[in-house]
């Protein structure tokens, strides 16, 4: 895998060679700095730790300051680990990774935290159908879940029964999004389709080979 940490900027659309209008998401990705290299001998697994997005010194704890100072960089807002990093992009301590590790046209995965929807009913949350008819004696149960189980056996509701509750705010990975365009000088990457999270939220961009 190789990857970067990015920030979702927003959505727009571009026209492809056939004149089709394609929705795409703009992500500001990198420059990411390698702040730590995890090794099998020492940590029991292989990964590299990347840091992204500037933050002020006064918002940084002393522990963080020391950690970033070790790799000789200013404090960063987000830190994430990427396991099994590709050999070509395997960098050492303090190195910089930019969007040029991706190429236009290839497929990537994007991980983010989805938008929070609050407390939602089963129709929105689990795609229950609800009750189809509003008339014929139907009254105020249009979006109700219906039965949640059987009777004297098991005399309880089974674990995992889909019900209303908090929705969104989950870690979501969208796989196989095409890279439409890379603008290296501004660290921007245009990805086909939508990406989880609100504008300005941080995402992990991964490419598995």
């Amino acid at each position: 895998m190789s990857g970067l940490i990015g920030k979702k900027i927003g959505m727009t659309s571009i026209y492809d060679a056939n004149g089709r209008n394609i929705p795409c998401t703009v992500i500001e990705a990198g420059p990411c700095y390698v702040t730590q290299v995890r090794l099998n001998e020492k940590d029991g697994y292989e990964a590299i730790q990347l840091a992204f997005d500037e933050k002020k010194d006064k918002h940084t704890t002393k522990a963080e300051r020391g950690h970033f100072a070790k790799s000789g960089i200013t404090p960063k807002r987000v830190v994430a680990e990427f396991s099994r990093f590709e050999q070509d992009h395997q960098k050492g301590f303090g190195d910089v990774l930019k969007v040029d590790i991706f190429t236009e046209g290839e497929y990537i995965d994007v991980v983010g935290i989805s938008k929070g929807k609050g407390f939602q009913g089963v129709v929105k949350r689990h795609h229950f159908a609800g009750v189809g008819e509003a008339s014929h004696g139907q009254h105020n149960r249009l979006r109700a879940p219906g039965s949640v189980g059987a009777s004297s056996w098991p005399s309880r509701v089974m674990k995992g029964m889909r019900m209303a509750g908090r929705m969104g705010g989950d870690k979501v990975k969208v796989i196989n999004l095409q890279v439409l365009k890379i603008i290296l000088e501004k660290n921007l990457i245009l990805v086909k389709g939508a990406v989880p999270g609100h504008n300005g939220s941080y995402v992990k961009i991964e490419r598995w080979k």
Binding site: I9, G10, T12, Y15, V26, K181, L188
Partner: peptide, 17 residues
């Protein structure tokens, strides 16, 4: 560069007017 400026930049560079 904030988000709105970035979007404007992208729309001006990527899309042919």
């Amino acid at each position: 560069m904030n988000k709105a400026e970035t979007m404007k930049f992208v729309e001006e560079t990527v899309i042919q007017k």
